[in-house]
Amino acid sequence: MTAMLEINDVHAYYGKIHALKGISLNVEQGEIVTLIGGNGAGKTTTLRTICALMRPTSGFVKLNGEDLNKYKPSQLAAKGVAMVPEGRGVFSRMTVLENLEMGAFHRKDKAGIAEDIERVYALFPRLKERHGQVSGTLSGGEQQMLAMGRAMMSRPSLLLLDEPSMGLAPVLVEAIFSTVEEINRQGTTILLVEQNALMALQIAGRGYVLQTGEIVLSDNAKSLQRNAMVQKVYLGVE
């Protein structure tokens, strides 16, 4: 069986800095896979490589067997890849509803779009309450919800989440993660990049541990939670 997302021996550079030193990972249809690691490990770079925002110097990224690097970043939405960037990039001068509509930018089916807006409102009732509000005035948690909702508007088969918990209060982090699980139950495959390894490993099926541009561990989430190195470095268990 071929994986939905297959990354094979990818190297990438920022100028002379060797950011990814041969990353290989794969994500199967319907999974939640998490990529954990500290600051500067290359988590975001990996996501940028998948989205074609960065070109790997060698190796390949394939989605359902098709090489993603021949596409422009703007063509990936139509391929079923949606990304929620770090720091929740919302269009801060647009309203919540306008942001969601932007998420469906490449789609032409008006009825389907209206349906999906309702679906997003069902996932995040808070967004429905605030649909007319300028998104720059939303709270951090609401902006994260909006960024995820906007990503869902392209009906992605693969959703890439970059540190959704960043800067949020613990109670909001839990809410966000349970919505991630819900999105996955509804049929979207998820690659979750997180520093909050504890939370990420609770909802993920499998995980990869990234250190200074290399994958040092990969296993199912349960085993990773029990792994001595992961416990020491990422879960803070002595």
């Binding site: 989205c51 925002l53 422009k72 970043p73 703007s74 063509q75 990936l76 939405a77 139509a78 949606a82 990304m83 960037p85 990039g89 919302v90 269009f91 801060s92 001068r93 647009m94 932007m102 998420g103 930018f105 490449h106 960024a147 906007r150 990503a151 392209s154």
Partner: peptide
């Protein structure tokens, strides 16, 4: 507003 996000939703910069 945000060039990266614009690309991510499928806008050709």
């Amino acid at each position: 507003e945000d060039e990266d996000v614009a690309e991510a939703v499928g806008i050709n910069l």
